[in-house]
Amino acid sequence: MANGRKIRILVAKPGLDGHDRGARVVARAFRDAGFEVIYTGCHQTPEQIVSTALQEDVDLIGLSILSGAHRYSFPRIMELLRENNAADIAVVGGGIFPLEDIPMLKECGIKEIFEPGAKLGDIIEWVGKNISAHGDAAPLSS
């Protein structure tokens, strides 16, 4: 029996930092909230992340980064999504960011930034409010 769209989320770690405890905790919380989570491990390039997001047809990409390379990798991911006609996939970030970088990240299209101390419940609630399975909203056509 059809039970509607299932929300799919890619949790990814761009760049060279190998600390994925946070990403795993969030992935687990998404699982417990009933989402399907694709987790690809550490050391992903923006290109790998976007390619995975396209093949897996996710609604949301959650990027976890602690290395400080967000100023490169986040805008690059947004650019690649646009190039691939996939700007409908939402992107959020979590990790450690200098406060002054946050406006720049939002400007490039990152929907939300979750800093250290963000509560799992708040992240789940944000997803519930802001993300719908995109097959519902706009059927793919060209």
Partner: peptide, 11 residues
């Protein structure tokens, strides 16, 4: 219990 899943084969 929740209908959620962690899909990790891609790693």
């Amino acid at each position: 219990f929740t209908g959620g899943a962690i899909l990790g084969d891609r790693i």
